[in-house]
Design a protein around this nucleic acid. Structure first.
Length: 120
DNA sequence: ATCATGACTCCGA
DNA sequence: ATCGGAGCCATGA
């Protein structure tokens, strides 16, 4: 709450556009929303969601094709896996999903418009 | 107002 | 494939 509604709305709108039976990554959502790769905002916005939300947050996974929520050992993680399977998305035993098959609008590779400084 | 953490991601070793 | 470090913004104390 008291959050930048525009930011959350942008993310929610993008997540709602994900077709049923398809998944996408946080980075992709952020990129399509115009955040340029700020995946953390997407995850944070989804975490702010409450029960009864109409946003298909379960269709959003990390770039590794894994359910971050499940990895986080969250009770909701199981819900996400069940929801995905219910839509036809096959989830691996290691909480892994084939982005190549179920990925929606997934960016294949980095598209840096600006070089990001890196350590080492 | 500041500090620390987080449903993330990328690159180098 | 695995580990670690740096960057972004929002939330909570």
């Amino acid at each position: 709450m008291t959050a930048a509604k525009t930011t959350h709305e942008r993310i929610y709108a993008m997540v709602r556009k994900i077709p049923r039976g398809r998944v996408t990554t946080y980075g992709t959502i952020a990129r399509l929303a115009g955040f340029g790769g700020q995946a953390r905002l997407v995850g944070y916005a989804l975490s702010a969601l409450r029960d009864g939300t109409t946003v298909p947050w379960h269709r959003v996974i990390n770039a590794q094709g894994r359910l971050s929520l499940e990895l986080a050992a969250s009770s909701s993680g199981t819900t996400q896996r069940l929801r995905l399977e219910a839509e036809g998305v096959k989830v691996d035993a290691g909480s892994r999903v084939s982005l190549t098959r179920f990925g929606w609008r997934i960016a294949e590779k980095t598209k840096p418009k600006t070089k990001r400084s890196r350590a080492s």
